[in-house]
């Protein structure tokens, strides 16, 4: 259960951090505001998931201890969300692929037999709805925009595509969660994800990559090089001044 909650909370923690890196540097003021909103939602959700994770673990670790005092191998997020921002197209495509998965994941978790999980999801679902709406809209407008914006979005899709498969790869923990009625198997989401993805890509005039090769490891603690650098920044104060309260 603890691991399952980390998987949920680390996704929003890491992606929220990535999005917050844009603060003050977005292409227009409206995007600065929108990205800050999304990052805020993600951090809020993180506090719920990691808060519950700490409770379930029962070792006295609160959400902050889990966020700021674990090393990379203890993180359980998807590799997709730790991929660097690169250009704005990458950032938007990463968000879109995540939102599409996340939206379906939360919809399934609404029915979780664990009331605490269902309770958190009830608080997050509206935000996830809005994130997905915004992401879809931007992918369509930029895909079917100028030649340059089309090329950037197609390139971003191709660069991030190898990180999509991990979202639907079931492992032993997923099977256990499914048996206990806490969370359905991730693979069960795949047909809905594909359908929604294809619809958006068609409207965006983007081409779905053919390869189904998937990079994996994030959900069991084997990450890309980028996560370590992100944590070095994010955890600096807590690591440098372990006795301080902030």
């Amino acid at each position: 259960m603890f691991e399952f909650l980390l998987r949920m909370g680390d996704n929003t923690l890491v992606l929220g951090h990535r999005v917050s890196e844009w603060c003050g540097h977005a292409p227009v003021l409206e995007e600065d505001i929108a990205l800050a909103n999304i990052a805020l939602d993600m951090i809020g959700q993180t506090r719920l998931w990691l808060g519950l994770a700490g409770e379930v673990e029962g070792q006295g670790r609160e959400a902050d201890a889990l966020a700021f005092r674990r090393d990379a191998w203890d993180f359980r997020n998807l590799l997709l969300v730790e991929r660097p921002n690169r250009d704005f197209g990458h950032t938007l495509m990463r968000q879109f692929l995540f939102d599409l998965w996340h939206h379906e994941r939360l919809a399934d978790l609404c029915l979780s037999e664990d009331d605490r999980v269902a309770g958190i999801v009830a608080k997050c679902v509206k935000e996830a709805d809005y994130h997905l709406e915004r992401s879809k809209d931007l992918i369509i407008r930029l895909g079917d925009g100028s030649e340059e914006s089309h090329a950037k979005m197609q390139a971003a899709l191709e660069a991030l595509w190898p990180y999509v498969g991990e979202m639907f790869a079931d492992d032993a923990l997923d099977k256990k969660m499914a048996e206990q009625g806490i969370a359905p198997l991730p693979s069960s989401q795949k047909p809905r994800f594909d359908k929604a993805l294809n619809e958006v890509l068609a409207k965006a005039t983007l081409t779905r990559p053919e390869s189904d090769f998937a990079q994996k490891g994030g959900r069991t603690g084997t990450h890309t090089e980028d996560l370590g650098h992100m944590l070095a920044t994010m955890q600096f104060l807590q690591r440098a001044y372990p006795d301080a309260r902030w």
């Binding site: 890196e21 603060c23 800050a36 909103n37 805020l40 993180t46 600096f236 301080a244 902030w246």
Partner: peptide, 26 residues
């Protein structure tokens, strides 16, 4: 300092504040 805020709460507050500044700009 947003990416180095020491707690999740501080990070959220700082983000909200900077977001307000952008809104004031608008």
């Amino acid at each position: 300092w947003i990416t180095r805020a020491p707690t999740l709460e501080r990070k959220a507050i700082l983000l909200a504040k900077v977001q307000d500044e952008a809104g004031h700009g608008l």
